[in-house]
Design a protein around this nucleic acid. Structure first.
Lengths: 332, 332
DNA sequence: CGCAACTCAGAGATCGCTCTCTGAGGATCT
DNA sequence: AGATCCTCAGAGAGCGATCTCTGAGTTGCG
């Protein structure tokens, strides 16, 4: 049997196509009795609006892409991607928009660009766990509302709408906690320098220490992994054996550092206090449990989706910084 | 500036809309010189065909959904989802079809059904690691070409096209290996009974032992997790302390079993040989490395995508069983 | 050389919906 | 009470492609 169309619904309800369309699109300027008639007719025929036709006529598809970088073998590595994804999905569904997941392969960006340019979707939320400048660059050429989760870095990223946690404030939170504990020789294990998130955290740490007149020389660089945290901690210890606190730019690096501290015979937090970043599951399960700066990952996804919807609706948006919070456990 | 349409391209190339359409759709019945003219005109205007219009007129969207259960973002699911996903994606892209990922939330199936019924896509590949009967049931009501990766179980699944590895043959492979090693008292740790994959593996194991006149009483049930493997092994040992081989229905259960065997003072494989299933990364990294039955996961995704394309093209398809292979390491 | 068969470009209808415009009917105001 | 305003249903024109049908030009064969 042929799929029922709007005309069928209209006939069944005894109204015109236009009225049926208004009801199904959720317009308010329709008499209540007709609304009911159309709704019931649609249900009776189990009618589904044809999105292609609606899209063609209305200029909007009702779908928003959520773009993830598929560099890793496991596409959904960790909550850094899953949590914003969840938040964005929930927001879009609540707004009756269809989320369309897209795994962007950095080596086949033409596919991504083609997809976005083909008007399958009205806008896109782009979630990149790591900075991938080729992706941001390719996207800048696409004429479509796009909001990034995480601040993109680079020349052409001015005015690009994004949602990020306030990494600077997060760095300050961590440093202030350590200062409040009476620590005075406070080191930092930074993440990759080419990531905005990473350098902002270190900047927050540095500013606080400077304000308190403390030294900011004890800096070692990692790459957010556990192994790099261990290596960085070892370097810090050899150069500054008298450290009494360390702020690590990620939980994984903090745990890596913890192992080295343990091996050196130091007790956390008695001899040396430790604060991590992200408040991932490892923070809760490490021994001792790690005090960590929490990022509102799911909320970031939610807000990014809201911003895309704003852009689609023609409203202009500004970048959003979301607050980080300090989750205090045993390590500091 | 307005987006260029087919009319613009046709005018630029000096041909009719119909001809331009034929060229861009890849038809062969067009003179070579016009093909060239249209191609160049399209490139000059950086024309992209409007998928909504094409879909409305042509009845096909050029997109195929890949459905995953949202719960399977769990990192542990790892390659069971990622590998078929990768295979399916590659196949679809090669056929110039747009893969559209969809995370199905088992508690909000209406969203999935609405998406599929709204004609966003021409067909769907459904990848479920665990049997989720509510999903398969909901999908049976949707009038759309669907192919499952993994055989769905249940009343209404007859004639449902699927791609699975030949779990029965895999179970046979494992059992034959153990028999070939001269083992005669061979137990099995099965997976959940309500999963076809799981019961097929056990059936293969049982048939081989029966053919060789060996006993098939040593059966314990697990749920594919490591902990359940340990528990099942402990039960097997208490009931059948003289076992000289065990076939575990998953690598994780095999590793769990290995821990218990080790604790009981038995040496793998000298005292007791062990074969796992799946050939996941844990098989390679366990100590001793695990002999395991490998599933062609990526190929399963590829074949499933091909079958969907066949269905979309109006060809009929049959279920496909793909061969498993035995990867021999140290444990058996 | 003539007629049938074939190839292939163009005209026009169509897919199913949204949106603007028009105008009927009722409410409000002077 | 008449004029004006407002609300809201219906008519009709697209949106941008595909696809069928038509017919001009070629080719093949008797």
């Amino acid at each position: 049997m042929r799929k029922p169309t709007l005309v069928d619904v209209a006939r069944e309800a005894g109204v015109s196509r236009a009225t049926a369309s208004r009801v199904l699109a959720g317009a308010s300027t329709v008499d209540q009795s007709m609304v009911l008639a159309v709704r019931q007719a649609a249900a009776r025929l189990s009618y589904r609006t044809n999105v292609a036709a609606r899209s063609l006529a209305g200029g909007r598809t009702g779908a928003v892409a959520i773009v993830l970088a598929a560099g890793e073998l496991d596409p959904f590595s960790g909550s850094f991607v899953a949590a914003p994804l969840k938040g964005a999905t929930a927001t879009l569904l609540a707004a009756s928009q269809q989320p369309a997941l897209f795994l962007a392969d950095p080596s086949r960006l033409d596919t991504l660009v083609a997809y976005l340019a083909a008007q399958y979707v009205d806008g896109a939320v782009v979630i990149l766990q790591h900075e991938i400048s080729t992706i941001t660059q390719a996207l800048s050429a696409v004429d479509l509302p796009i909001v990034f989760v995480g601040r993109p870095m680079g020349e052409s990223t001015d005015g690009v709408p994004f949602v990020d946690s306030d990494n600077y404030a997060g760095g300050r939170l961590a440093a202030e906690r350590l200062v409040a504990l009476g620590r005075t020789r406070i080191g930092v294990i930074s993440g990759p320098v080419d990531m905005a998130a990473s350098s902002d955290r270190v900047r927050g740490w540095r500013d606080v220490l400077t304000e308190y007149g403390l030294g900011t020389r004890a800096v070692a660089r990692g790459d957010f992994t556990m192994a790099s945290g261990s290596a960085a901690m070892a370097r810090l210890l050899s150069r500054h054996p008298d450290l009494d606190a360390v702020f690590a730019g990620s939980d994984l690096m903090a745990v890596g550092a913890m192992r080295v501290l343990e091996a050196s015979g130091r007790i956390v937090p008695d001899d040396i206090a430790l604060v991590g970043f992200d408040d991932t599951v490892v923070a809760a399960t490490s021994e001792p449990p790690l005090t960590s700066v929490r990022q509102p990952l799911e909320q970031m996804g939610r807000v990014a989706a809201e911003l895309v919807l704003d852009l689609v609706a023609g409203r202009s948006v500004r970048p959003h910084w979301l607050d980080t919070t300090l989750v205090i456990r045993d390590s500091a």
